[in-house]
Design a protein around this nucleic acid. Structure first.
Length: 677
DNA sequence: GTATCGCCCTAG
DNA sequence: TTAGCTAGGGCGATAC
């Protein structure tokens, strides 16, 4: 038996491992946090049958716990730091990535940089730290992550009773995955009560809820997870654990499940009304050093599905169903035979496994870690906060690098901003078309407008100032279709165009690298990274028009849309002039649908490509019109509502493309969808 | 009976 | 203590 020192859950711990005389391998930890120890036996052996081992552990742990409790282990910052062996912890720990600007302190900056009295966003700790931080390799590090997936089954329905009065008969299934660690670690199921008859899992039994709760916190020491996942755990499971601990043990005695032993796990109300994600009444769990990553929240955000029940979601993505156990049967099974309890354990286990499978199948964790790296916000912000913080983070990062200060806009409750004009939707020539309909699209229209015309917070100029500077129109500055002035690149390159071109070129590099990547794991990471770069580039336009908080700039947003409106009209005119028999039958924002008449698909394909190339010539550099697809036949029922067979070649259609019609809407019943289809 | 508004959910 | 944008169709509730 070997003994050494290590860190678990950010705390000093003693680790015991080895093979006992009776041939069982064992691994356990003792910390200052809990007097319990954890035993791992890889072959499913039940340690309490090994009297010799148990006695040895009992003696040993008593003396060890005393050692720990006597304070011979001092919490040592350097051990904690050196134990940080992977990137995610940096992401979780706000302090390290230098995004403390979110904690704003007014005035500090003015002392140093008196010329800018308008600046309010200040790096609280150290500006020098932030600007000297090397971001150059920020997108290239990889590291292992420890994940804990869990689920609780409870015999009482949540919501029916106050949580503290729930029937204490619960089961916790914990499936533990450890990547990149050397300790042997398998699946663990904890089941309350005398369920030792379940042979296929490593099972520990607990006679009281109190013991079980201790064991739960013990698990945090044993697994020391970076990420805690589950399905809708934020709205029930974690709250349950914390609330029950409060009820049973008083105050917050057990809520120190984070990595910093001096920080309690906090639960905040997270009531948001958000246009993008709708109304939500959730709790936000702040566990120091660990990220709560609720798969339900992710799926709900990323995918449009008719139902978000775990059963449906896992069937949809994995082709797997839940074990079918009714709520009302749980207690019966629990009180039943060994076989019954085994069924219950399997049900629990499945519910903990499915989120893990979903996460890996959809690359959710990888994609979100990449997004955190690209945008520079802490990992937990991605689920807890909206899109603005990501854009703001990118702007601040580049701004500090390039020597700008970011201005704050005071947000007044109830203040209304006049909405600005958006995109043009061309009138739809409603009908059923049995001829090929070609579609021309601008690729990322709003981004290319911002780059091509150098639109940015840092480049707008008043007519008065332009005159004072002796600037010449169309050389030193341009006037947008709705009358705002922006200086040209020669005068000053805008911050947003800089960010955009950096993101786009980074994405190009990664897309090139993906082609040569043979390792499937690395492939997934690169894929997630390029997706993150695309997403974060696309969110910058929304920032400029966001009427609530941070960096509203209607002049930029409305200039972008005004250019867009002008451009869609230009395409329509150019195409109809160049091809007199053609007619633009519909168009929305950045696309036009063209009827070239009754010609074969090959001809439509050729003419479409030609038209895209020809029309692109009418626009500034960086703006590309693409010929992507044809519809044949095409059914246009109104603005934003159409369907058609989608062709990208002349042989076979790719899919049936349906937009806006009841078939794709989730507020009608299945019968209507099926019938219309 | 008609106009208007709020709500939902989509297109881009 | 927190929230990307506008355009648009369709439907039920309400006002007149």
């Amino acid at each position: 038996m070997h003994i050494d020192h290590c860190m678990r859950g950010g705390r000093p711990a003693i680790r015991l491992y080895g093979i006992t005389e009776s041939g069982n391998s064992v691994l356990c930890y003792v910390t200052d946090f809990l007097p319990y120890i954890y035993i791992h036996t890889p072959d499913g052996f039940q340690p309490h049958h090994d009297a010799q081992l148990m006695k040895w552990l009992e003696d040993k742990s008593k003396s060890l716990v005393n050692v720990v409790n006597d304070g011979q282990f001092v919490y040592d910052e350097t051990i904690y730091e050196s134990n940080i062996d992977f990137e995610l912890r940096f992401m979780i720990d706000i302090k390290i990535l230098g995004v403390n600007w979110i904690k704003l302190k007014k005035g500090t900056y003015e002392e140093k940089y008196q010329h800018s009295s308008r600046c309010q966003y200040v790096v609280e700790t150290s500006y020098e730290t932030l600007i000297s931080h090397d971001f150059s390799d920020q997108w290239s590090r990889t590291a292992p992550v420890t994940i804990l997936s869990f689920d609780i089954e409870c015999t009482a329905q949540p919501g029916k009773f106050p949580v503290a009065q729930l029937d204490p008969v619960i089961q916790i299934a914990c499936v533990i995955l450890v990547h990149g660690e050397t300790e042997p670690c398998a699946n663990i199921v904890l089941v309350l009560g005398g369920c030792t008859g379940i042979p296929s899992y490593t099972v520990r039994s607990y006679n009281t809820e109190e013991e079980l709760l201790w064991a739960w916190y013990d698990l945090f020491i044993y697994v020391d997870p970076d990420v805690i996942i589950g399905y809708n755990i934020e709205s029930f499971d974690i709250l349950y654990l914390v609330d029950r601990a409060k009820f049973l043990f008083g105050n917050n005695s057990l809520s120190k499940s984070g990595r910093n032993k001096d920080e309690y796990t906090k639960i905040e109300d997270n009531l948001t009304t958000n246009k993008a994600y709708g109304f939500r009444d959730t709790k936000r769990i702040l566990m120091h050093g660990r990220a709560v990553f609720d798969i339900y929240r992710v799926i709900e955000r990323e995918f449009k599905l008719p139902s978000y029940k775990l059963d449906h979601v896992s069937d949809h993505f994995l082709g797997e169903k839940k074990e079918d156990v009714k709520y009302s049967d749980i207690l019966k099974l629990y009180d039943g035979t060994n076989d019954d309890r085994q069924r219950l354990a399997q049900y629990c286990l499945k519910d903990a496994l499915l989120p893990l499978h979903l996460m890996s199948k959809l690359s959710l964790l990888i994609n979100y870690i990449e997004l955190a790296r690209v945008t520079g916000v802490p990992f937990v912000y991605l689920l807890a906060c909206g899109q603005q913080i990501r854009g703001l983070s990118q702007i601040c990062r580049t701004a500090f690098r390039d020597g700008y200060l970011v201005e704050a806009i005071d947000y007044q409750e109830g203040s209304t901003v006049k909405p600005y004009e958006g995109a043009t939707v061309l009138d739809a020539c409603v009908g059923y078309y049995t001829v090929p309909i070609a579609t021309l699209d601008f690729s990322s229209l709003y981004l290319s407008i911002m780059m091509a015309h150098n639109l940015c917070y840092t480049t707008q100029i008043t007519p008065k100032r332009a005159k004072e500077m002796g600037f010449a129109k169309d050389i030193d500055y341009i006037e947008t279709p709705n009358g705002y002035l922006f200086v040209s690149q020669m005068v000053r390159r805008g911050l947003i165009p800089t960010i955009l071109s950096e993101l786009i070129s980074a994405r190009k590099c990664i897309k090139a690298a993906i082609k040569n990547e043979a390792d499937p794991e690395k492939y997934k990471i690169l894929e997630g990274r390029q997706l993150a770069l695309k997403l974060s580039a696309n969110s910058l336009y929304g920032m400029t028009g966001a009427t609530k908080r941070y960096l509203l700039c209607v002049s930029i947003a409305s200039s972008i849309t005004s250019y867009g409106r002008e451009m869609i009209q230009t395409i329509k005119e150019v195409v109809e002039k160049k091809y007199p028999e053609s007619k633009v039958i519909y168009g929305d924002t950045d696309s036009v649908m063209i009827n070239f008449g009754d010609i074969p698909l090959e001809d439509a394909l050729r003419i479409g490509r030609e038209a895209a190339e020809y029309t692109t010539g009418f626009f500034k550099k960086l703006i590309n019109l693409e010929f992507e697809k044809m519809y044949f036949p095409y059914l246009l029922t109104s603005k934003k509502r159409y369907a058609g067979l989608y062709y990208t070649n002349t042989q076979k259609y790719d899919k049936l493309d349906v937009k806006g019609i009841q078939i794709v809407r989730r507020d009608s019943c299945n019968f209507i969808r099926d019938l219309l289809k």
